[in-house]
């Protein structure tokens, strides 16, 4: 540690100030960010869902996404035993719309769905279900929940409806505080959901 307190280097006979390479470097550093900003602004989002256009979940169930939703991914959404699902996402929240064969009441389907969810999350807790409008005229159930997955606290809502041999559920979750932001979107998509006749 040979140089402290620091002393300015003495100017050398051929020591130019080096403005040109310095400005070139500064231009590269800021320029790269501008390039990214520009490219990001002009590139269309291939995953963005068209607002209000029908989106088939399966077994005759269709939703109409509100603005800002895009395709999401989760390999666990596809299940071989007759379960059909799609995943969409917005603002850090993933929403799974799932349709599966089910004979029974909405209350029973909702309870079973919550039990499944409880097995996947640690320290799972859910609020008592409240009624939610599904498909214009049907009464489904909705519960808010929270739990830990891989050391991450997740919060979300689960809405369920049993309808003519199908169990329809909407499971949306995100990090703490995120899910509440998209709740109006979810309620609208549940309300406008088209169900099989």
């Amino acid at each position: 540690m040979s140089e402290w307190p620091p002393t300015p280097s003495p100017p050398r006979p051929h020591d130019r100030s080096g403005w040109v390479p310095t400005l070139a470097l500064a231009a590269a550093m800021f320029g790269w960010m501008l390039v990214l900003l520009f490219v990001g602004a002009v590139t269309p989002d291939i995953n963005l869902l068209p607002t209000g256009q029908p989106l088939e979940v399966g077994m005759g169930v269709t939703i109409f996404p509100t603005a800002g939703w895009s395709w999401g991914s989760d390999p666990s959404a596809a299940d071989p035993d007759g379960v059909e699902a799609i995943v969409i996402q917005k603002a850090g929240v993933r929403a799974f719309f799932i349709v599966e064969p089910f004979e029974g009441s909405t209350e029973e389907f909702h309870r079973l769905s919550l039990e499944d969810l409880g097995r996947d999350l640690d320290m799972f807790e859910a609020l008592l279900p409240v009624e939610v409008a599904v498909g214009m005229s049907q009464a489904g159930l909705r519960s808010a929940f929270r739990g830990w997955a891989q050391k991450e606290l997740l919060e979300g809502v689960l809405a369920s409806l049993s309808y003519r041999g199908s169990g329809i559920s909407c499971l949306a979750f995100g990090r703490s505080g995120q899910a509440s932001v998209i709740l109006p979107d979810l309620e609208y998509m549940l309300q406008t959901m088209r169900l099989s006749r």
Partner: peptide
């Protein structure tokens, strides 16, 4: 012995 504190160099600024 160079130094970071070289005000004669544009890169320092």
């Amino acid at each position: 012995r160079g130094s970071l504190f070289s005000p004669q160099r544009a890169a320092f600024w």
